[in-house]
Design a protein around this nucleic acid. Structure first.
Lengths: 230, 230
DNA sequence: CGTATTCACTAACCGTCAGTCAGTCATTTA
DNA sequence: TAAATGACTGACTGACGGTTAGTGAATACG
C-alpha cells in the first residue's frame, strides 16, 4: 500500500511549490504589497488551495523566511568548518553574515518582520515556534564558539559566551539594517562608510574580549575589510 | 481680522486632537490592528475628516511617532545638560534610553516601523523627511558628545565620532529590541539577563574607545547597573 | 438685513483583499 | 459498479483604507 506514501510525498511537494511561488512574489513586492491571489496564480492553484497548506498569508511569509534561515545556518556551519580556531570562526562569521546580507538581501528584508511582533496579525503559534527553534540552532553554534574561545584562553575568562554572542550578533545585525536603509545618507551627510563601521564595530568588540595572547595572533586577520559597494 | 488666525489655531487644534485619538488606538492595538474607523470614533469625527488632516493611516502613525521622538530628544537634551563631561553624558544617555524604553514602551514599539521600509505602503515623502530631520537632531547631539570627548582627550584620537555614535546607538537599540521580544526566553533557556547585557555592552564599548586617563576616572561610574524587571 | 460664499465635516460608497465554504471531480475503495 | 475520499475550486463575505458628493453653519458681501 504505497498510495499513502505517494500522497504524502505529493502533498509535501505541493507545499513546496506553493512556497516557491510565494517566495517569488514576496521577494518582488514585500509582505504588504503581495496578494494571496497573485501567489495562487503563480502557483497555478486557486487561492482556497493555499489555505489547505498554510493557515494565513503571514504564516506563508514566515515559511519562506525559514528557507532564509536554513540558508544562513548552513552558511554558518560551513564557515565554522572551514575555520581553524573559534576566534577566526567568529570573525569569518561576521564576514559571512555581511555576504549573506549582500547576496540574499531579499531574505534579510524578510527577517525584519520577525523583529516587530506588533505587526503580526495572523502568525500562528506553531509557525512562530518553528522559527524560534531554527534561530536557536544558529545561536547555539555561535555561543559554542565563544565558549570554546574562552576554554582555549583566547577570550577573557570573565565574559559570558551567550552574552558575548548577543552583543556581537545584535550590533552586527543592527548596523546591517542601518546600511540597508541609510547607507547613502551617512555617506553624504557625514562621509561615514557604514560598511567599514560594520567591520570596525565587530573587530573592536572582538579585540575588547580577547586575551592579549589572542590579540597578537589575530590582529592581522582583522585589518583590510571591504568597503561600501552601494 | 482675527478670524483667519482663529481658524488656523482651531485647525491646528483639530490636528492635535486627531493625533491624540490615534495615539490611544495605536498604543492599544498597534498599526495593523488599528482601524481608521476606530480612530475616527475616538476623535468623535468621521473617517473622511481624518483624511483632511493626514494623508494616510501610515502618515498618521508616523505623526504619533514624532511625538515619541520629541520626547526622546528632550530627554537627551536634559541628560546632557545635567552631565559634567562628554563621557558621563554618553553613559547617562545609555541609562536614559533604557528608561525611555521602559517608561515609553509604546513609542519604542512604534519606532520599529521606521526600520522596515518594506512595510511602508502609504508613507508620504514629506512625513518621512520630517522623521529623518528629527532623528538627525538627536544624532547630532550624540555625535557632538563623542567629538567633545575626543577633543578633551577622553576618547582615543583614532575613533571617528559619527562611527562611534552609530556603533553605540545601534547596538544599544538592537539589544533593547531583543529585551522587548526575547527577554524571558534568554532568561529561561540560558539564564542570561539581557538587561545586564545591555549595560555591559555599552560599558564595554565605552571602555574600548576611552583613553587610559578617562578609564580611571569613569570606571566606578559604570559598575552597578540595573537588572531585569520583566 | 438678506444673499452668496466658503469650508469643515459627513456618511454613503468604492475597490481591494484575506479568508471561507459549498460544491466538483478524479482517484481509490468495497 | 457504486460509494467514499479528499484535493481542489472559485464565488462569496466581511473588513478596511481611502474617496467624494453633498450639507449646513459661519463668514463675507451688497
Amino acid at each position: 500500500m504505497g498510495i499513502q506514501e505517494r500522497k504524502e510525498r505529493e502533498k509535501e511537494q505541493r507545499r513546496d511549490e506553493i512556497l516557491t511561488a510565494a517566495q517569488a512574489v514576496f521577494f518582488e513586492k514585500g509582505l504588504t504589497n503581495s496578494t494571496m491571489d497573485e501567489i495562487a496564480e503563480k502557483a497555478e492553484l486557486s487561492k482556497g488551495t493555499l489555505y489547505l497548506y498554510y493557515n494565513s498569508k503571514e504564516d506563508l511569509y514566515l515559511a519562506v523566511m525559514t528557507r532564509g534561515f536554513d540558508l544562513l545556518h548552513q552558511m554558518c556551519v560551513e564557515v565554522v568548518e572551514r575555520s581553524t580556531s573559534p576566534v577566526e570562526a567568529i570573525w569569518n562569521l561576521s564576514k559571512a553574515y555581511f555576504e549573506f546580507f549582500e547576496k540574499q538581501r531579499n531574505y534579510f528584508h524578510m527577517f525584519y518582520f520577525l523583529q516587530s511582533p506588533t505587526l503580526h496579525k495572523q502568525v500562528s503559534a506553531e509557525m512562530m515556534e518553528s522559527c524560534t527553534q531554527q534561530t536557536n540552532k544558529t545561536w547555539k553554534l555561535f555561543i559554542d564558539l565563544f565558549q570554546q574561545g574562552v576554554n582555549e584562553g583566547m577570550f577573557r575568562k570573565d565574559i559570558s559566551p551567550p552574552e558575548a554572542a548577543v552583543i556581537l550578533w545584535s550590533s552586527a545585525n543592527s548596523i546591517l539594517i542601518r546600511i540597508d536603509n541609510e547607507c547613502e545618507r551617512w555617506k553624504e551627510q557625514l562621509n561615514v562608510d557604514l560598511v567599514q563601521v560594520y567591520f570596525r564595530s565587530n573587530a573592536l568588540f572582538l579585540e575588547s574580549v580577547m586575551t592579549k595572547k589572542a590579540a597578537t595572533t589575530f590582529a592581522p586577520l582583522m585589518s583590510n575589510v571591504p568597503t561600501a559597494t552601494a
